[in-house]
Simulated assay, not measured.
Amino acid sequence: MSISSDGIKKDHNQLLLRCIGEQLAELDLLLSMYPDEAELKIEDFVAVDELRRLVSEVDVDAMSECQFRIGFTFRIIGTSNLECICRLSGAYPTEKPPGLFLRSDWLSRDRLRLASEALANQLEEMFKPGEPMLSWLTEFVSTNIPTDEDASASTATEAGAAETEATTDQRLCRLWIHSHHIYNSLKRRDILNWSAELRLTGFSIVGKPGIVCVEGPESAVEEFWQRLRPIELEETHYEGERCLSARCY
Rank of each mutant, 00 (worst) to 15 (best):
L82Y: 09
G7W: 04
E235G: 01
L112F: 06
L123F: 04
P35A: 11
I85P: 02
R242S: 07
F72E: 12
D6F: 01
D110T: 14
T236M: 15
P129S: 04
R171Y: 03
F127C: 09
R189K: 14
L112D: 11
T147G: 03
K41I: 00
D28P: 00
E222H: 11
R18Y: 05
E239P: 15
R242M: 08
P230H: 04
E158C: 02
E22I: 01
R113D: 04
G99D: 09
V46T: 10
G90Q: 09
K41D: 09
Q226G: 09
Q122K: 13
P230R: 07
R109N: 11
K41R: 12
L172C: 04
E139H: 13
E95G: 07
F101D: 13
F68N: 08
L123Y: 05
D105I: 00
R188C: 08
V60M: 00
L186P: 00
T138R: 08
K9C: 04
Q122T: 15
D11T: 01
S135E: 11
D190H: 04
E232N: 09
S4L: 07
E50H: 15
F72A: 14
E57Y: 00
L88M: 04
D6S: 11
E124R: 13
Q122G: 02
Y238V: 15
G21A: 03
K9N: 10
S4C: 01
T168Y: 02
L134H: 03
R113M: 08
C213H: 03
Q14I: 03
A91W: 05
M1F: 03
L172I: 07
C19Q: 14
M133S: 05
S195H: 04
E222F: 06
E43T: 13
G207F: 10
P230S: 08
R75F: 00
Y183V: 02
L200F: 11
G99A: 08
R87C: 01
W194N: 06
E125R: 14
V221T: 11
A120T: 15
P129V: 06
A120R: 15
L51F: 11
A162G: 03
I85M: 09
G202K: 02
L51S: 11
L107V: 02
C173D: 01
S2N: 01
I205R: 12
H180Q: 13
Y183F: 15
S108N: 12
I20D: 07
S185R: 05
M63F: 05
F203R: 15
M63H: 10
R242L: 10
H178E: 12
V206S: 09
N184Q: 05
F224M: 13
Y92L: 10
R189M: 11
F224D: 03
D11I: 01
R247P: 01
L233A: 00
L29V: 12
P132H: 14
T164H: 09
E83I: 01
P209L: 02
L112R: 14
Q226E: 11
A166P: 05
I177Y: 02
L40G: 12
E124L: 07
A196C: 01
P209T: 06
Y34I: 00
R113Y: 00
S116G: 14
E124W: 00
P98H: 14
P129H: 10
D190T: 02
E83H: 08
H178L: 15
I145N: 02
